[in-house]
């Protein structure tokens, strides 16, 4: 075990990690931040996406030790300072962009990364960017609409072909 320290959602946190401790396990089991989910073991599903030093990464495919000293942002830190939902979270609720909620933390974190890179993405760009986030409930329809809305764009009932 070694001590690993990182700044999580703006606050310094530290805990014990073995070499093999994944960042996702460190967040969930060591720090109790269970909003980050694990839905696969092959780095495909994206339920575990967090931001490390501002970049979206799959926290199940990174060792906690690799994030030692890093800035880490998770779903628990996304709401506004007053506790209200941020623009992306609110859009997901407004457009019914989630059902069971399990993939949702990763979707929100990926959407945040996308909008940082590309503030006004097209429908096709949104779909392409989400290729590392699997949702089994929504058919992605309302997730795409939510992200269009979060970027301030008009949201058609059904997008043009």
């Amino acid at each position: 075990m070694t001590k690993v320290t990182m700044t999580i959602n703006g606050k310094p946190r530290s805990g014990d990690a073995e070499g093999r401790t994944l960042l996702s396990s460190f967040l969930r089991d060591e720090l109790g931040l269970t909003g980050t989910h694990v839905g696969c073991d092959t780095s495909q599903c994206g339920a575990c996406v967090v931001h490390v030093n501002g970049k979206a990464v799959k926290s199940c495919t990174m060792f906690a030790a690799e994030a030692d000293g890093a800035e880490v942002d998770t779903i628990e830190g996304q709401a506004n300072a007053d506790g209200s939902l941020n623009v992306i979270q609110q859009a997901f609720q407004d457009y019914h962009g989630l059902q069971c909620g399990f993939c949702t933390p990763g979707m929100v974190m990926s959407a945040a990364a996308l909008l940082k890179e590309n503030p006004i993405p097209s429908e096709a760009e949104i779909r392409h960017y989400l290729e590392g986030n699997i949702c089994r409930c929504t058919g992605y329809h309302n997730i795409v609409r939510a992200i269009l809305a979060a970027s301030g764009q008009d949201v058609p009932a059904v997008a043009a072909e």
Binding site: S43, V57, K58, A113, E131, G132
Partner: peptide
């Protein structure tokens, strides 16, 4: 390659 999160690592 992969997806955006994979490409970041």
């Amino acid at each position: 390659i992969g997806d955006p999160a994979v490409r970041n690592r």
